[in-house]
Design a protein around this nucleic acid. Structure first.
Length: 608
RNA sequence: GGCCCUGUAGCUCAGUUGGUUAGAGCGCCCGGUUGUCAGCCGGGAGGUCGCCGGUUCGAGUCCGGUCAGGGUCGCCA
């Protein structure tokens, strides 16, 4: 070792010890005859006192972020010189020798944690960003992430789970997003896909009798990137055989418990459960934030006889903004803009004055009876205002659900220190493909119905008889884990019976032949004694971000990409040479007459 | 793909109604300083105002386009 001690660990008990330290020059205060050097390593900072005679040779002009090795004796500081802000503040290291291990040019930004630096600069020189000290620094987030990984691995190892790696060069998996593609040099014209998740492989591992599998798996999806999305991201992926929904949920709770324990939070289990239908009706979303109580109020029946045209709709709902009546007019206008940004026509509102009379543009359109009972029906107090959405059920609830969050933020209803966990269960198995098409999605099959989760999700037993006659009512053994309004995990019990799988494909309009083309290898495997199985996958980046107390998953990824999938550090993606292009077979023309290799003519309509 | 915001020194930002030589703090460079701890003092360097075009006697400032970044909706489990 090049050192005997670590800088941040020195204490008065070390006084008199001769130590050798290594680290970086965090700061230098030169007084002519004596200089004070803050020496930083991963454990913290200690002050090195260097007299003139030590600062010779290259050590003479020590500058910021020089990497150095210091030999010296730990000395106690006089009382007046103690720095209470530093864990090592009661001691100095009196240097007898300073060796420059590596010089540093002037840095593109300061390492000092108190200096704010834009994200682009930090990403371009991520290695310097990671060097920055401080509890909220990215480097600390990575250390936390490592502990979180270990906590999960420990728990899963205790329960005899097997950590298994699956291929990253593979076929497309049926997750529904666009695949990243890799040309196959040895088969020009054929391409690998990077996995969107290890879904099919982990099911194969169940057929293989591994019984309990997990993996901290990198996943790839070629979609437009958002604040919270990276083209490559990480899941804790788990699959188990011979289990029912409750078993997977119990495991999920144990994992959450173990993981949150790394930040000293003890989660009470079991977590509450809510049905998907309930979540949509009461919160307008499948991932409700329950850190505050506010709920949507169903008003369709209340306005059944309404004279107000806008409220003569399939669905009318409301959400109350406590104290909202006091908002200035332009704020109400801003709410309209906010709603329009979300694709709504607007956001109707009614104010409730202190004397109980209703105001706002909508009030006069309502019948007298409707006005009289409205505040009581929606639970609005004097001074509150009520926002309404009317129209298609799903879209209206979505708007109100978003308004609910916006209200909570503006009014300050959210307890930022709270951890609210819940399971959302009983998700529908299918959604109408028209919904999917309307929302820009493309059905996996050509039928009227498409899978909500994925095509291998098991229907609950009581809906087996009505799968074909009433697909829209069928519920699945599918469950999402929600934390503070974030979906941090989700999974399902899978179909292991061939007959049910075929019926589900049929409802989705997927022919035998198409199914064979897409998932033939899985269906083949299922012929040979597939065990009942199910699993769950956790959004690892988001979970670590929650634990680290940061908004952005970029802050918990060592080398994240910025918008457009660009890596400011390596400047990937980059052009390739003509030679690479030739070898990769990118430009290979498919033989029109040759029989298409398995799956080769699958063109995802979304790609065109 | 739609909408909104931003782009000025290495970093973080200011820049008035369109008007002389574009500023500040930090950092950097040089010199000084024997008890500092975001040291202090003196001096200095550093700018294609993202890019292209337009309006104007005159553009960092106004207009059009474009690129990049951020946010948001669409998309995405």
């Amino acid at each position: 070792m090049l050192r005997t001690h670590e800088a941040g660990t020195l204490r008065p008990e070390h006084v008199g010890t001769t130590v050798t330290l290594t680290g970086w020059v965090a700061r230098r205060r030169d007084h002519g005859g004596v200089a004070f050097i803050d020496l930083r390593d991963a454990t913290g900072i200690v002050q090195v006192v260097a007299r003139d005679e030590v600062l010779t040779g290259t050590a003479h002009d020590l500058r910021s972020e020089y990497c150095v090795r210091v030999i010296g004796e730990v000395t106690a500081r006089e009382d007046k010189d103690v720095n209470p802000d530093l864990p090592t503040g009661a001691v100095d290291v009196g240097a007898t020798q300073i060796e420059v291990l590596s010089a540093a040019e002037a840095l593109p930004f300061q390492i000092d944690e108190r200096v704010t630096v834009g994200e682009e600069a930090r990403l371009r020189h991520r290695y310097l960003d990671l060097r920055r000290p401080g509890a909220n620094a990215v480097g600390q987030n990575l250390r936390l992430r490592s502990k979180v990984n270990a906590a999960a691995r420990n728990l899963l190892a205790e329960r005899d789970f097997v950590e298994i790696e699956t291929p990253t060069l593979t076929r497309s998996t049926p997750e529904g997003a666009r695949d990243f593609l890799v040309p196959a040099r040895l088969q020009p014209g054929s391409w690998y896909a990077l996995p969107q998740s290890p879904q099919l492989f982990k099911q194969l591992l169940m057929v293989a009798g591994m019984e309990r599998y997990y993996q901290i798996a990198r996943c790839y999806r070629d979609e437009d990137f958002r604040a919270d999305r990276q083209p490559e991201f990480t899941q804790l992926d788990v699959e188990m055989s011979f289990v029912e929904q409750d078993d997977v949920i119990e495991l999920g709770e144990s994992i959450a418990k173990a993981v949150w324990a790394t930040i000293g939070v003890e989660l009470p289990t079991p977590f509450p459960r809510m049905t998907y239908a309930d979540a949509m009706a009461r919160y307008g979303t499948d991932k409700p934030d329950l850190r505050f109580d506010l709920e949507l109020v169903e008003c369709t029946d209340y306005f059944a006889e309404t004279p107000f045209r806008v409220f003569q709709a399939e669905y009318v709902g409301a959400v109350v903004m406590p104290g909202g009546t006091g908002q200035p007019r332009r704020q109400f206008d801003a709410w309209q803009e906010w709603a329009k940004q979300r694709g709504a026509r607007g956001l109707a509102y009614v104010t409730v004055a202190e004397d109980g009379t209703l105001g706002g543009p909508v009030a006069k359109n309502l019948s007298e009876a409707e006005r009289d009972g409205l505040a009581a029906h929606v639970g609005a107090a004097p001074g509150d205002c009520v926002f309404f959405a009317a129209g298609a059920t799903r879209a209206s609830r979505g708007l109100l659900g978003a308004a609910r969050l916006e209200i909570a933020q503006r009014v300050g209803l959210i307890d930022e220190s709270a951890w609210s966990f819940l399971w959302v269960v009983d998700a529908p198995l299918f959604e109408p493909a028209s919904d999917a098409v309307a929302s820009g999605d493309v059905a996996v099959g050509g039928g009227a119905w498409t899978a909500v989760h994925h095509a291998f999700t098991s229907p609950q037993e009581e809906f087996l008889d009505s799968l074909e006659s009433d697909p829209g009512s069928a519920l699945a053994y599918a469950y999402d884990l929600v934390c503070n309004g974030n979906e941090i995990g989700g999974g399902s019990i899978r179909i292991h019976r061939r007959d049910i799988q075929e019926r589900v494909f049929a409802v989705m309009g997927l022919s035998e032949q198409e199914a064979q083309e897409k998932f033939g290898f899985l269906l083949e495997a299922f012929k040979f004694g597939a065990p009942p199985h199910g699993g769950i996958a956790f959004g690892w980046d988001r979970i670590v971000a929650l634990l680290a107390g940061t908004e952005s998953i970029r802050d918990v990824i060592a080398f994240p990409k910025s918008g457009g999938g660009f890596d400011p550090l390596t400047e990937a993606p980059a052009p390739i040479t003509p030679q690479q292009r030739k070898e990769a077979g990118v430009d290979a023309k498919p033989e029109p007459t040759a029989p298409a290799p398995q799956g080769a003519d699958e063109v995802n309509p979304r790609q065109s």
